[in-house]
Amino acid sequence: MTQSVTLQDSHSATDHAPIRRPWRWHIAVFLAPALLVYSALMIIPLAETLRLSLFSSKDQVISFVGLQNFITLFGDPRWSESFWRALWNNTYFFLIHMLVQNPIGIALAALLSLPRLRWRSFYRTAFFMPTMLSFVIVGFVWKLILSPLWGVAPSILAAIGLKSLFGPWLGQEATALTALSLISVWQYIGIPMMLIYAALLSIPDEVIEAAECDGVTGLAQFWKIKLPLVLPAIGLVSILTFVGNFNAFDLIYVSQGALAGPQFSTDILGTFLYRTFFGYQLQLGDPHMGATIATVMFFIILAVVSFYLLVVQRRIRRYQF
């Protein structure tokens, strides 16, 4: 079959000028499978989710309600309380990531990129290892370690003289979300570390040598020369973290259950969406309110990503070497 089209195809493809040509079938053949799968399973369901959020069903009758679902979600006390709590918790979850993950990631990357460092690849491999594990594993591992029943955490803390600090962190309303954020940081620290490490390595030697000639060394060199040069990488890490955090679900579900206990104190948008969509305990699932929450999440992520691409990324100074 391919034989018959060979000749005319090879003619048309060797010429790159955008002149009108007969329909080139092979382009369609190359593109079709990817576009088909992608549209059918990503774009159409996403559009369908947005559409469903404008409808409501009562007693098996589905009716168009416009933006009523959103008004309910933001304003009706039965929904809004959970929604705003989940949104705030999610923001807090993200802030902890930014405040803990980025500084530690930058510090580790800076140390790893020191010249003539021994065991570099061993450290790199070790630091990145938790990132490979699933949230299911990570959630349970930390649940066991922090469990007051097992007593591993207290005895490790005792070894460094901090035993009095220990508490059942995952079980207390005041500390559960912070503890989970830190567990998530522990798991994902490898990604910011690697991206910033790569950015540090790509700084040309001449720049560093020039700095050394001017007497800028050590920490001053880090703050004044290297950090400004890796800002684009830090920006990228931040936006990746944001998208990851605002559709997080697994870790909370595994360690605290769908109810995101204690007392919903660890409820984030992902778990809220899951509970709403599928129902829990006595409450039935509601696909329309579920779609509404997913739509809100979609616009939050879209807004922040666009803001990053259109405003932040353009302002960050990039240096071409």
Binding site: M42, P45, T49, V243, A294
Partner: peptide, 15 residues
């Protein structure tokens, strides 16, 4: 690349 596929879950399950 930017939007997580999870947000289309409602539509995917329906399909």
């Amino acid at each position: 690349v930017m939007v997580p596929i999870r947000l289309g879950t409602v539509g995917i399950l329906e399909m």
